[in-house]
Amino acid sequence: MRIGIFPNVTKRECAPWVQKLLAGCRRHGVEALLPAYVAESEQTIYREIAAVHYHPFSELMNTIDFAFVLGGDGTILKLARSFALAKVPVCAVNFGSLGFLMEVEPEEMEARLEAMLQGLYFLEERTLLHSELCCADGSVQELPTALNEIVVAHGNVGKMIRLDMSINGHFVQQYPGDGMIVSTATGSTGYNFSGGGPIVAPQVKCLMVSPICPHLLLKMPLVLGEDAVITFSAAHSRNAVRISIDGMRDQELPRSVTLRVKRSPYTLQMIRFDENYFYTNLFTKMTGRK
């Protein structure tokens, strides 16, 4: 077996655990590789790792069987598209402030590695969102893939915008307000949840649309089938509108351009060990209960 180790190099607490995971891999006869950018980190402990473990990111994605990601939910969001395209299953190790996507704690890593070697795990598929900008001249600009959500919102704080929303080519509603959230089941516990949307278990195949502070009496979120195609137009908005993809990519939505959002053909495969982990995380990390 060959695994890739992807630490969040901005979290100093990850570094010693990378060393421990490398030692565990040696004990179990597992080849462990790291992306070359890790060696360029300011943390000297990464430069002490033998050069043979480091490989270019693209080469790594084509050669590993599994990935250990050490970080928080944001680390998963940054790498999700790469893992999905390469069809590399991910074991997520929690070093985040919330770590809702993470099932494994640092001290459990070697035990989980042993379980993987014995086949004592299952794969959970997470839906991704594909989005594109459809221009008046017929051209289409593809946007980065999202794991959590795509947000269409005001570009200026305190300025109301108007978004025309259609589903599967049928006009549904013009929403005046702060914007709209399109989320996956994964993103249902993120911005969607904060905005009053439903929490959905990860195995439910659906998309959700939640208005952000709408100036409407009818302001309920919608749960749609996974094959729904959602489009937004800002043609009737006097104020600037922007698109945010998983909180990382941000750009303007011009009035002459339509945003189209649908399910991506790719999925992110998460390695899981406990079928009830989602509910355990939900009622501990999201409520403060122990």
Results as ranks from 00 to 15, higher is better:
232 F>I: 08
13 E>A: 15
226 E>Y: 04
96 G>K: 03
271 I>L: 13
56 P>K: 06
88 V>P: 04
141 Q>R: 13
112 R>P: 03
192 N>V: 02
27 R>A: 01
1 M>L: 14
217 L>W: 12
63 T>A: 06
212 I>F: 00
281 N>Y: 01
146 A>L: 10
255 R>M: 06
76 I>Q: 02
248 M>I: 04
57 F>W: 15
136 A>M: 10
120 L>Q: 15
54 Y>C: 05
219 K>S: 12
253 L>Y: 03
129 L>K: 15
172 V>L: 14
237 S>E: 04
205 K>W: 00
246 D>M: 05
25 C>M: 10
162 R>P: 02
112 R>C: 12
242 R>K: 15
123 L>E: 14
252 E>M: 07
63 T>L: 09
32 A>M: 05
88 V>Q: 09
155 G>P: 13
74 G>N: 06
262 K>W: 05
194 S>V: 11
80 A>R: 02
194 S>H: 11
163 L>G: 05
80 A>G: 05
12 R>D: 10
143 L>N: 05
21 L>V: 11
120 L>H: 15
252 E>P: 03
258 T>M: 12
83 F>T: 05
71 G>R: 03
184 T>F: 09
203 Q>V: 09
70 L>K: 11
159 K>D: 14
264 S>R: 14
206 C>F: 06
202 P>F: 05
243 I>P: 02
193 F>Q: 11
239 N>V: 00
139 S>Y: 06
265 P>Y: 04
76 I>Y: 00
123 L>D: 06
2 R>K: 15
168 N>Q: 10
57 F>S: 07
280 T>E: 13
269 Q>I: 12
13 E>N: 11
92 A>V: 13
198 P>G: 05
253 L>C: 02
11 K>P: 04
267 T>I: 03
